[in-house]
Amino acid sequence: MSAHIVKVLDSFYITHDVKCFVVEKPAGYDFIPGQATEVSINIPEWKNQMRPFTFTCLRSKEYLEFMIKIYQDHDGVTNMLGKTNAGAELIINDVFGAIQYKGPGVFIAGGSGITPFIAIFRELYKNKQMEENKLIYSNKTSDDVILGNELSKMLKKNFINLFTRQNVIGYVGKRIDRNYLIENIVDFNQNFYVCGTSEFVKSITGYLINLGVNPDSLVIED
């Protein structure tokens, strides 16, 4: 495994608990949109504490970008990342990940599970290939939506927000369940991209397979 020490060029919160990190891009370093790497903080007590985070920038950019949910309720890696700012150093490793674009379809994301899809959408939008894709994005409240304005600009009417703990006029206030999928997806003979917590992915993929989706058409993290 090759490790690269990279400097944090910028860091800022994009929601109340999600922080964006812009870091140096090592020479020759590349990824496929949707992929991730393991990241740690380059200080003695944290450098071996690696966690997986997804690239969210266009692969053509001269920097790398991550959007990371910060958990302040315990003294873990993301809590420390919440205190990490421009000028600090991170360690990034080899690229990995099974999530990548395989053609038009329905993207279903829960919370910070949107992050693998951001680089995919940005690439498709740049190449004017967004029209046949749809995003169903579930969050607890509207305050938890990551990049809502940008996603709305890219996907337009194909961007659907659901809030599980808040009723907002004009938006659906419910969870994604089997009935919701039946009511809102016309064609189950297409690609489905699913990312979120392990329970979220397990339940959504279970519903989809039950509704006749070919397992080979499901794109999830292994």
Rank of each mutant, 00 (worst) to 15 (best):
S2N: 13
S2P: 09
S2D: 13
A3W: 05
A3M: 04
I5A: 05
I5K: 14
K7Q: 01
S11N: 07
S11W: 13
T15C: 10
T15K: 05
V18D: 10
K19V: 07
F21V: 15
V23N: 10
V23Q: 05
E24F: 08
P26A: 10
P26H: 03
F31T: 00
Q35T: 02
A36Q: 10
S40N: 02
E45K: 12
E45L: 11
N48K: 09
F55K: 11
S60A: 15
S60E: 13
S60W: 12
E62A: 11
Y63N: 08
L64N: 05
L64S: 01
E65A: 03
F66L: 06
K69D: 14
K69C: 14
I70K: 06
I70M: 04
I70H: 05
D73T: 10
D73E: 08
H74E: 00
D75G: 08
D75I: 03
G76T: 09
T78S: 08
T78D: 02
N79L: 13
L81W: 10
L81T: 04
G82E: 07
K83E: 13
K83H: 08
K83Y: 12
T84Y: 12
N93D: 09
N93C: 14
F96S: 10
G97S: 12
Q100M: 15
G103H: 00
V106N: 07
I108T: 03
A109T: 12
A109Y: 03
G110I: 01
I114V: 15
A119K: 02
R122Q: 04
Y125K: 11
Y125L: 05
Q129E: 14
S138E: 05
N139D: 12
N139F: 00
T141N: 05
T141R: 02
V145Y: 00
L147T: 06
G148Q: 14
S152I: 10
S152V: 04
S152G: 15
M154N: 13
K157E: 08
F159R: 06
F159H: 08
N161I: 01
R165E: 12
Q166E: 15
N167K: 11
I169D: 05
R175Y: 11
R175C: 07
I176W: 05
D177A: 02
L181F: 02
I182C: 07
N184P: 05
I185M: 01
F188I: 02
Q190L: 00
V201Y: 01
V201M: 04
V201R: 07
K202F: 15
I204F: 06
Y207S: 13
Y207L: 10
I209D: 04
I209M: 03
L211C: 14
D216R: 02
S217K: 03
L218V: 15
L218T: 00
I220T: 10
E221L: 15
